[in-house]
Simulated scan of single mutants.
Amino acid sequence: MDPRLVDTIAEDDRWQAFGLDGIAERAGRATLRDLGLDPAGFEISLMGCDDARIAALNAEFRGKPLPTNVLSWPSEERGAEAEGAAPDLPAGDPDMPEELGDIAIAWDTCDREAAEAGKPMADHVTHLLVHAVLHLLGYDHERDGDAALMEGTEARVLAGLGLANPYD
Rank of each mutant, 00 (worst) to 15 (best):
S45L: 02
D111S: 07
H124N: 04
A55P: 02
E77W: 11
G22L: 15
L129E: 06
C49K: 06
T68I: 12
D108R: 03
V70E: 03
E81C: 09
A132V: 03
A40Y: 11
L20P: 00
A56N: 08
T153G: 09
Q16T: 13
I23Q: 10
L46T: 04
I9S: 11
Y167P: 03
G160C: 06
G36C: 09
R14M: 10
L37F: 14
N69T: 14
V70F: 00
A56H: 07
E142Y: 10
G162Q: 05
S45N: 00
F42I: 05
G162I: 04
E151T: 07
T68K: 12
L35G: 13
R156Y: 00
P67T: 09
H124A: 04
T68H: 08
R78A: 13
A82K: 15
A122Y: 08
V133W: 04
L134C: 15
P87F: 11
D146V: 03
M96F: 08
N69S: 12
G48C: 06
L137A: 15
I44C: 00
E98D: 12
E113F: 06
G92L: 08
V6R: 01
E113L: 05
H131L: 06
M96C: 09
I54P: 01
I105R: 01
G118Q: 07
F42M: 04
T109R: 05
R62H: 13
T109P: 03
A10F: 00
R156E: 06
T31I: 02
I9E: 09
N165Q: 04
V6F: 02
D51S: 07
H141N: 12
G28H: 04
L158I: 15
A114S: 07
N69G: 12
R14F: 05
D12R: 00
G84R: 11
A117Q: 08
A147N: 12
T126V: 14
G28C: 06
L161N: 00
R29K: 10
I23H: 06
D102N: 15
R112S: 02
A164L: 09
T126R: 11
Y167D: 02
E83F: 03
G118C: 10
G19L: 07
A24D: 05
I105C: 03
T153D: 09
P39C: 01
I54F: 04
L134I: 14
V130N: 09
T153S: 14
G41R: 11
G160K: 02
G63F: 04
G84L: 15
E25L: 01
A148D: 10
A164F: 11
A114C: 01
L129K: 03
E11M: 14
G152P: 04
D95N: 07
E99D: 15
R26H: 10
E154L: 01
C49M: 08
A59W: 07
E113G: 01
K64N: 12
L5Y: 05
L136R: 15
H127R: 15
P94A: 10
L149I: 07
G92C: 05
P94T: 09
L37D: 11
A10C: 10
M121K: 10
P94C: 06
P97M: 09
E113R: 07
L57I: 03
A59N: 14
L158D: 04
A117V: 02
